[in-house]
């Protein structure tokens, strides 16, 4: 543990506080935006964009993914692919369905 490392960390502390502030503000924003009378599609898009942005702030800084090792990026990329598969393929199967469309 060198001094440079300690110095490094104290620099990070400032970014933690900034991220916290951003998360708090975005929480207010998402609640405020939800009070508008959007269509469902637009409301989903806006809410998910804000949530994704918040989530990536947490992952990048609190979970320090910005400076993480390559193996972890690979792992998360793989997981992300299967996550997308898991979300969209059952949905696709339901929408492309013979018979009564409303009952999946």
């Amino acid at each position: 543990m060198s001094d440079s490392h300690t110095h490094d960390v104290s620099k990070h502390v400032r970014s933690y506080v900034l991220v916290f502030a951003a998360l708090a503000v975005l929480t207010i924003v998402t609640v405020w935006v939800a009070s508008f009378e959007f269509t469902v599609g637009a409301a989903v898009a806006v809410a998910l964009i804000i949530a994704t942005f918040k989530g990536s702030l947490v992952a990048s800084f609190f979970m320090h993914l910005v400076s993480e090792k390559k193996a972890i990026y690979w792992l998360l990329a793989l997981t992300a692919i299967f996550f997308v598969v898991l979300i969209f393929l059952p949905l696709g199967a339901m929408l492309d369905h013979q018979g009564t469309p409303n009952v999946p």
Partner: peptide, 21 residues
């Protein structure tokens, strides 16, 4: 192996596009 699972479900009324996939 993660993207073949619905070949167990061809008889569930699956449409042709997803079935082809």
């Amino acid at each position: 192996s993660f993207i073949v699972w619905a070949h167990h479900m061809f008889l569930t009324g699956m449409g042709t596009s997803i079935s082809t996939f």
